[in-house]
């Protein structure tokens, strides 16, 4: 679906960005596909976003030891 969605959005974007004017059909296709993506993704998301949802760089290569108590990196 993503390859179907993003090119539809891209067509709309490119028409606006390069001054071709956004016709109703292109706009409709872009909106429709964004709604389709949202319909697929939304059921997987929580209504109460949590800070633990995204990995941060320190979690990606933690060596198991916290920083020094004064906050200085080791």
């Amino acid at each position: 679906m993503a390859e179907a969605i993003w090119p539809a959005v891209w067509r709309a974007w490119l028409r606006v960005r390069y001054g071709a004017g956004l016709d109703a059909e292109t706009l409709e296709a872009a909106v429709r596909t964004c709604e389709a993506l949202r319909a697929v993704w939304q059921p997987l998301l929580t209504d109460r976003p949590d800070n633990a949802e995204l990995p941060f760089p320190n979690a990606m290569h933690a060596d198991g030891e916290p920083d020094a108590p004064d906050g200085d990196p080791k």
Partner: peptide, 24 residues
């Protein structure tokens, strides 16, 4: 040849949502 022009249209919110979903 139009792709580098078009990639800028991916919404930041969609990218972050995709990262959240990846973690889940």
């Amino acid at each position: 040849r139009t792709t580098p022009h078009a990639l800028a249209s991916i919404p930041a919110a969609a990218y972050v949502t995709a990262l959240r979903l990846r973690q889940r």
